[in-house]
C-alpha cells in the first residue's frame, strides 16, 4: 500500500500540500485528479522520494520512500517532463537503468521495441515529444516496477498510442499485479482504467474512494409521481411530470423506497463518473468543471 499521511509542503509562502492524506491500495489503479495547480505533481514528487515533506509521512508497504533506495527500486516513475541524459540513446539509457534496477527485464525491453518502434541509436533528445514519452514507458516498464507512478502520462501521445500505452499498463497490472497511480487533470481520461480515484484541489484531498463504492452509493432515477420521503436527493430536474433525481444510496435501497410509494413510472439509470463528481462535490465551492471539461 502506497500511503501519504498528513503531508504538508510549503514553497516559500505558498502551501502546495495542505495536510494531504492519500492511500493507494496494493494492486489498484488509482487516478489522481485535480485542476492545474491542485498539487498533483507535488504529491507525486513526494511519492517518488524527490521532495522531502515539511511534515507527515510517505510510505510504501510501511517503509519510508524518501532516501530509501531499496523501496525506490520497486517504483517506476514517468514524470510529466521526461528525464533522460542529453546525449543518451535508448541503449545507453538501458545500460544505465539496468545498473540501477536489478530486476530490469532485457527480454521485455527487446519486446517493447516492437510496440514502440523507437530508434535504438538516435539520441533521445532528437525524438519528438510523443516519442520521448514512449521511450520513458519503454524504459520504465522494462524495470518491472511493483508500483508505477505516472504524472500526466498520455499528454503528447496520439490517440492510437494512448490506447496502446494504456493497454500496456493494464496488461502489466493484470499479469504482475502492479499498483498504478496516474495523475491527470482530465477525469474522462481515467474513467475507463481506474478503480480508485482521488480528487485534489488547493493541496488538499477533496474525495478519495473506490469507483465501485462511488457508483454503488449514488443513483440517477427518473420518476413520475411524488418523491418518497427519506431519499437523500443531491440534484433534481423536472420536465413536465417527469422528474430526474440524483440520489445518494444503493440502487436496491433507492428502488425499494420508491416502489413503496407506488409511482406511475420510475427507472434507475447508470451514472457516469463525471456526474457522480459533479453531484458529490456540487455543494462544495470547488471548480469541479475544471477537472471534467
Amino acid at each position: 500500500m502506497l500511503e501519504m499521511k498528513n503531508v504538508t509542503k510549503t514553497f516559500g509562502d505558498f502551501k502546495a500540500l495542505d495536510n494531504l492524506t492519500m492511500t493507494v491500495p496494493q494492486g489498484a489503479v488509482y487516478g489522481l485528479v485535480g485542476p492545474n495547480g491542485a498539487g498533483k505533481s507535488t504529491a507525486i514528487r513526494h511519492l517518488t522520494g524527490i521532495y522531502r515533506p515539511d511534515s507527515g509521512s510517505i510510505t510504501l508497504e510501511g517503509l519510508p520512500i524518501y532516501e530509501n533506495p531499496q523501496t525506490k527500486q520497486t517504483i517506476g516513475y514517468i514524470p510529466d517532463d521526461i528525464f533522460y541524459f542529453p546525449s543518451a540513446t535508448m541503449e545507453e539509457m538501458r545500460r544505465f537503468y539496468k545498473g540501477l534496477y536489478p530486476q530490469f527485464d532485457d527480454a521485455l525491453f527487446e519486446r517493447l521495441y516492437e510496440a514502440f518502434d523507437l530508434p535504438r541509436k538516435t539520441p533521445i533528445r532528437r525524438f519528438s515529444k510523443g516519442m520521448q514519452k514512449q521511450a520513458a514507458f519503454h524504459l520504465v516498464l522494462s524495470c518491472r516496477p511493483e508500483v508505477l507512478i505516472l504524472d500526466e502520462p498520455v499528454d503528447g501521445l496520439d490517440p492510437v498510442m494512448r490506447r496502446q500505452v494504456m493497454g500496456l499498463i493494464l496488461s502489466d497490472v493484470a499479469e504482475h499485479g502492479t499498483t498504478v497511480l496516474i495523475s491527470s487533470h482530465n477525469l474522462r481520461e481515467l474513467e475507463d482504467i481506474c478503480d480508485h480515484v482521488g480528487i485534489m484541489d488547493h493541496g488538499k484531498m477533496l474525495l478519495e474512494r473506490s469507483l465501485a463504492d462511488m457508483q454503488g452509493s449514488t443513483v440517477k432515477v427518473q420518476i413520475v409521481g411524488e418523491i418518497p420521503d427519506g431519499l437523500e436527493v443531491l440534484h433534481e430536474t423536472a420536465s413536465g411530470r417527469l422528474k430526474t433525481l440524483v440520489v445518494r444510496g444503493s440502487a436496491e435501497e433507492v428502488t425499494r423506497k420508491i416502489e413503496a410509494e407506488n409511482p406511475a413510472y420510475f427507472d434507475v439509470l447508470p451514472l457516469s463518473l463525471e456526474e457522480i463528481f459533479i453531484y458529490e462535490l456540487g455543494g462544495v465551492n470547488y471548480e469541479v468543471k475544471n477537472i471534467i471539461l
Binding site: R45, T48, G49, I50, P69, Q70, T71, K72, Q73, I75, Y77, P79, D81, I82, F83, Y84, L100, Y101
Partner: peptide
C-alpha cells in the same frame, strides 16, 4: 527536469 528525474532513481 534532470534534478527530479535523477532523484527519483533508487
Amino acid at each position: 527536469r534532470m534534478c527530479n528525474g535523477i532523484h527519483s532513481l533508487p
